[in-house]
Design a binder for these strands. Sequence first.
DNA 1: GTCTATATTGCGATAGAC
DNA 2: GTCTATCGCAATATAGAC
Lengths: 199, 199
Amino acid sequence: MSTDSREKILRAATPLFAEEGYDRVSLRKISEASGVNSAMISYYFGGKKGLFDAAFASQLEALEGFLSLDVEAEDPRTVFRCYAEAAVAVHEESPYLLPYLYRVMLAPDGETPTFAETIGKVYGHLVRALERGMAAGLFREDLDTSATALLFAGSINFHFLSRRFRDGIALRGTRFPDEKTYIAQALAIFLRGIAKEGT
Amino acid sequence: MSTDSREKILRAATPLFAEEGYDRVSLRKISEASGVNSAMISYYFGGKKGLFDAAFASQLEALEGFLSLDVEAEDPRTVFRCYAEAAVAVHEESPYLLPYLYRVMLAPDGETPTFAETIGKVYGHLVRALERGMAAGLFREDLDTSATALLFAGSINFHFLSRRFRDGIALRGTRFPDEKTYIAQALAIFLRGIAKEGT
DNA sequence: GTCTATATTGCGATAGAC
DNA sequence: GTCTATCGCAATATAGAC
């Protein structure tokens, strides 16, 4: 079966790690879910941590789309719209990215250099768009770019982060709009909130 | 020493659970950190889960301040300002709440009825404030109240949630404003973003 | 209430046959 | 590449002496 087993392991492990977290997923569980003998995990990935890193990295690739945006050429507002669109797309095609992201944020134990680098780039795009927008007189001049970039990213991501919690435990009975509606509204509120007075 | 040991355990366990997560904290570790024999944990809390729940519940009490607000009597905008102020205060006096909260959100395994109830109430306050503000002509009429409440809470909380990550791993070298500056700006952007046109 | 000692379980990893 | 068998370890929990 050649390296087919490698793929099977990765495919089974990715959702498990995202949903249950690193510590709650045992190699035995991954072995059962993938149908591949547990010894193969060490064989292909060098151990549990190696498998986790591989699974995480595969999800991070979903951000490449946004990162390829030429932030110096676009209207600053477009950068935020693109981020929002990318977030929806990313979540659809790579639904395990956000859980991974927040788990790593909450438990920054091991080294995650690729992760830090990728997130740093995304963040840099947002900060740069704010700087350009302020220089162009589109945005308020009293914005702290670091804080505002964080605020924006947090606003968009929170919807995905809280999804399981909203649906499963609390806030039952409350109707939530779908992704696109939420994102559109978050974007509208944010862009209106940072716009220069009299626009 | 009477039930002094109970307190020692709780005080040692609370930050450990918040920082490292449920699974990474062993009863041995708590025993060492607290200076109390590990057998006392089961004696007082019935087990590890019981201790975690007790630690979590003790942190949730910090939200009582905001919950005691009379949301029907206040200016709707004041409710949001109060939430923001409460978030800063809560984080100062109860810095372990947010990590707990998000860990439970990401891993909603066991039952957390108190948690769901408390968060539901906080959420209800925000939704109600939005409804009243829209009815009073203060806020835009096209707001989805559920989505907007979530957006606001996410904006405010994200700052605290991401703190360790920002400081420790990625985004090093970026200067972040202190809590009060961030919160003030988030509040200003949000309130401006949801305000009715021409205010 | 407190402690020691231990029962029991499950983990990640790997040696070695095939 | 794959599998079985197992090692060594750390986890939670508790029985029972004090």
